[in-house]
Each structure stands twice: as structure tokens, then as C-alpha cells.
């Protein structure tokens, strides 16, 4: 088992629970999409797995090592995290990716660090952008740079927080296809939060639906039912099969006026 999350509970300062008894596990080469409405706790869950937020209780194991008791640097050796918002400062793409070697640096850079950054740029097709400033990149390019930065950490697990939210259709498909390819080829595992259920259906091996800080359902894409989506999002939908691929489509507006339809 690559990643095992058991019984995570987390609260904000006011003591209100934001996550309650979350648990799942993920094999090598697998992608888990975390779905759910705004405020369901998707981002919080990723931060908890990465030790960025204190838990009330819960266990996160990466390759059978309990990571939450490790030094932050040691966590960064195992989990690569791409935040939802990324700053694009006056820094070259190569140097931005080089930052991913930070957890491995002792005092200064080694030739191997530079070599790994070059390798990651090649892998993600960023070589021609190596000497461009971050603030000159498009949204899709910036997202790819952030994924490259997480990859040079050489983690076992990638955590991506809404990697597609600022991207156009083509960049969404390209980015997720790239992530899935890398995760499979290099025997990693990845947890991705998404708003678009159809992207989850297309690219993920497992879907985890969060609602009000709890796991509402955990299904394989092929087993997704319209009732689940309707109950999680409060929107009546059809789940149809198109070219062998399941697709979620919200019902037409006249049906939406009567939200009871399709909701169990």
C-alpha cells in the first residue's frame, strides 16, 4: 500500500470539526480524485495528509511509515504538494523547479540537483521555457512548472490541490493526462482535488466524495450513480455512458426547478 489514511479528524481554532473520520488507501500507480462541493473539506484534507494542518487525531502512512510524526523536511521527501494558488514571481522556470530540491539540500546545491531539475523539465516538456520568467508564463505552463517542482522532490505521493481550476479545456486534459502517465510510469500515487466530476471520471482510478467534512461515498468511476452526485451537490444529474466513458450531465433547467427529481 503506497498511501494509507486512517480516521482523520481535524478542527479549526473554534473547535468546529472540518474533517471527521476520513479514511482511504491507495496503491502504487493509482490516482484518487477528491470531489465535493465548495467548503466540503477537500483542500483541508490534502493539507492534513501533508502535515500542513494539525490533526485532532488520525494516521497517514506512506509506504508503511507514519509520516505525521516526521520532521517537515522528511515529510517533503515523501509527499509532494502543489497548492491551489501559486505565486509567479520574477524568477526563472529552472530556478522555480530547483526550489523543489530544497528538502534534499544540506548546505548548497549539488550537480545532481541541477541534473534532476533538467530531467524533470525534459519529462514535462518544459525545456524550452527553462530561462523564461515565471510571471511571463500562461496559466497552464505555470501549473506544469509547479508539478515539475513537486516531482523533483522525488516524492512517493503527489498531492494536487485543484490543479485544473485556472486552466482551459485543452490544458486541463493535458495536465491530468500527464500526471496520470507519470504516476503510472514511476509507480507513485496521487491524490487530486477536483471540481469537475467528468475529469475525475476520465482520469482517476477512485473517486472520493466529501460532504460536510465526511466521506459520503467512495466509488470506482464505472460504478458512479446519479443519486450519489445529486445527494453530494444537491443538483439533479444524469450519468450516461458516452464512447465507453461515464459522463455526468446536469439535468436541463426545467428539471432543475424541481430539484426533488433524481434525488433519492
Amino acid at each position: 500500500m503506497m498511501l494509507a489514511v486512517r480516521d482523520i479528524c481535524a478542527d479549526y481554532r473554534n473547535g468546529q470539526l472540518v474533517l471527521e473520520n476520513i479514511g482511504f488507501s491507495l496503491d502504487r500507480g493509482r490516482t484518487l480524485a477528491v470531489l465535493g462541493p465548495n467548503g466540503a473539506g477537500k483542500t483541508t484534507l490534502l493539507r492534513c495528509i501533508n502535515g500542513l494542518m494539525k490533526l485532532r487525531h488520525g494516521i497517514v502512512r506512506v509506504e508503511d511509515i507514519d509520516v505525521l510524526n516526521l520532521h517537515p523536511k522528511a515529510i517533503a521527501h515523501r509527499l509532494g504538494y502543489v497548492a491551489q494558488r501559486n505565486e509567479a514571481g520574477r524568477i526563472k522556470v529552472f530556478d522555480a523547479v530547483l526550489l523543489g530540491r530544497k528538502p534534499h539540500m544540506v548546505w548548497s546545491l549539488s550537480k545532481a540537483d541541477l541534473s534532476k531539475v533538467s530531467g524533470a523539465l525534459d519529462l514535462l516538456g518544459l525545456r524550452s521555457l527553462a530561462l523564461r520568467y515565471l510571471d511571463e508564463l500562461s496559466g497552464g505552463e505555470l501549473q506544469t512548472v509547479c508539478i515539475a517542482r513537486a516531482l523533483v522532490q522525488e516524492p512517493s505521493v503527489l498531492l494536487l490541490d485543484e490543479p485544473t481550476s485556472s486552466l482551459d479545456l485543452k490544458n486541463r486534459l493535458d495536465t491530468l493526462a500527464l500526471v496520470r502517465r507519470i504516476v503510472r510510469e514511476h509507480h507513485m500515487a496521487t491524490v487530486i482535488t477536483l471540481h469537475d466530476i467528468n475529469l475525475g471520471l476520465r482520469f482517476a482510478d477512485h473517486l472520493l466524495f466529501l460532504k460536510d467534512g465526511r466521506v459520503f461515498a467512495q466509488v470506482e468511476p464505472n460504478a458512479l450513480k446519479a443519486e450519489t452526485v445529486a445527494a453530494v451537490y444537491g443538483v439533479a444529474v444524469d450519468v450516461i455512458r458516452h464512447n465507453g466513458q461515464k459522463v455526468v450531465i446536469p439535468k436541463v433547467e426545467s428539471d432543475l426547478l424541481n430539484p426533488k427529481q433524481g434525488v433519492p
Binding site: R47, N50, P72, A76, R149
Partner: peptide, 20 residues
């Protein structure tokens, strides 16, 4: 210097890289 570079990339990113 690398801690400041990490913070420039955003607080969450910096934390994810093991920076306190």
C-alpha cells in the same frame, strides 16, 4: 536564502517543501 525563495512561492508551497 532558500527559505526566502520558498516563501516567495507562497506560504503553502513553502510549508509543503518542509519550511517552517
Amino acid at each position: 536564502r532558500w527559505n526566502y525563495n520558498a516563501i516567495d512561492a507562497g506560504d503553502q508551497t513553502a510549508r509543503g517543501l518542509g519550511v517552517r
